[in-house]
Design a protein around this nucleic acid. Structure first.
Length: 364
DNA sequence: CATCCGTGGAT
DNA sequence: TATCCAAGGAT
């Protein structure tokens, strides 16, 4: 291990900076409390790390609060209904995370006696936990000197060591560079300090080098090309795909919804029946025979790897309508907040176009 | 190693 | 408006 090695001076400077400038975050035990012996709750660390995968702190805050209020410990989450967890995750994106979150919670209860594995290798066995998350939880919750490499750390070390290899090929090189900075002391604070530095000082554009505790050892800063690092492989253009969404409103106000299959886009989420999006609207049929009409302008939504243009069709159907797909959900039980953002957009377009029972009563 | 998988804010 | 980007993982 590194016990007998000296902690690099730069690492000490970074920890000192963290002691003064650590962000205050709902899932974090700050450096002051940590020094006083307060231990982070592994469940909260794990939950926050899953939520933070490819997701901004600002977007995560409210979700983390709602999840921990509703499911304060891993056993409670493990016992939750799948649909409830997916509904609570709706809008946060990357829904495989939510499916794996539940699997992970249940694995902790079923296979680990309700306690999280306390090592990087043990954590890696949990679904949804990869190299980053395993190292982060091991370091932050269990003080294991694991090297944590996320997008922030990649940027920081690419600049410190002026590594010009483009990502993702540079990944292993960046990991080795980050490992050379990982101390035996305060590994959790060090990991969070690296990420805070990347998030607040060593930012992708216009890094605030004048405020950086590591400026003296920064090779890119010395060369003046810090803003161009890390280099990245060129991105592929997003194709445009088309599709149709069918939103049926029954005479009693019930709405036709379906739970999407676990695989594919928005997997496991509630949504309106629709066509596939891989062709030009697809040849598939509507979920029931009705007089379908355009609800409004074409919906536009951009996913990670394609742009989507969706026609939203609506129909008012009789009380005895029998759908070919999906199931009617009573008006009182329908919560738009349980839908992923795309489906919520579809509802916003449709709501203005369907005839509500109240309107019917008023017209009668 | 490449591809798939969301979303919203910043620029 | 278009592009980039954020505490990545699974396949």
């Amino acid at each position: 291990m590194r016990d007998t090695e000296e902690t690099p001076a730069a690492t000490l400077r970074l920890l000192h900076w963290y002691d003064r400038h650590a962000r205050v975050l709902p899932w974090r035990v700050g450096p002051g409390d940590r020094a006083a012996g307060v231990r982070p709750d592994p469940y909260r660390v794990w939950l926050s790390e899953i939520m933070l995968q490819q997701t901004t702190v600002a977007a995560v805050r409210d979700y983390f609060r709602r999840f921990t209020e509703r499911w304060p410990e891993v056993a409670a989450l493990a016992a939750a209904e799948d649909a409830e967890v997916m509904a609570e995750w709706a809008g946060l994106g990357y829904y495989a995370r939510a499916r794996n979150l539940l699997k992970g919670a249940r694995a902790v209860v079923a296979d680990h006696g309700g306690r999280f594995p306390d090592s990087r290798d043990g954590l890696l066995t949990l679904p949804g936990v990869g190299p980053y998350t395993a190292a982060a939880v091991a370091a932050i919750a269990f003080d294991e000197p694991a090297t944590v490499v996320d997008g922030n750390v990649e940027r920081v070390v690419a600049r410190l060591f002026r590594i010009e290899t483009p990502l993702p090929a540079a990944k292993s090189e960046l990991t080795r560079a980050a490992a050379s900075l990982t101390p035996a002391v305060r590994p959790g604070d060090h990991a969070q300090a690296m990420m805070d530095l990347g998030a607040t000082i060593c930012t992708p554009r216009n890094p605030a080098c004048g405020l950086c505790p590591l400026i003296h050892g920064c090779a890119a800063r010395a060369a003046g090309d810090q803003a161009t690092l890390p280099r990245k492989a060129p991105k592929v253009a997003k194709p445009v795909r088309d599709g149709v969404l069918w939103i049926a409103c029954r005479a009693d106000g019930a709405l036709l919804l379906e739970t999407r299959p676990d695989s594919g886009m928005l997997g496991g989420m509630l949504g309106w029946p629709g066509t596939d999006w891989d062709r030009s609207g697809g040849p598939s049929d509507p979920p029931l025979t009705a007089l379908w009409r355009d609800a409004g302008p074409e919906l536009r939504h951009t996913f990670t790897h394609f742009h989507l243009r969706l026609r939203v069709l609506v129909a008012d159907v009789p009380a005895d309508a029998v759908p070919l797909r999906g199931a009617f959900v009573a008006q009182a039980a329908f919560r738009p907040s349980a839908l992923p953002t795309l489906m919520r957009k579809g509802w916003n377009v449709a709501a203005a176009a369907i005839r509500h029972p109240n309107d019917t009563a008023r017209l009668a």
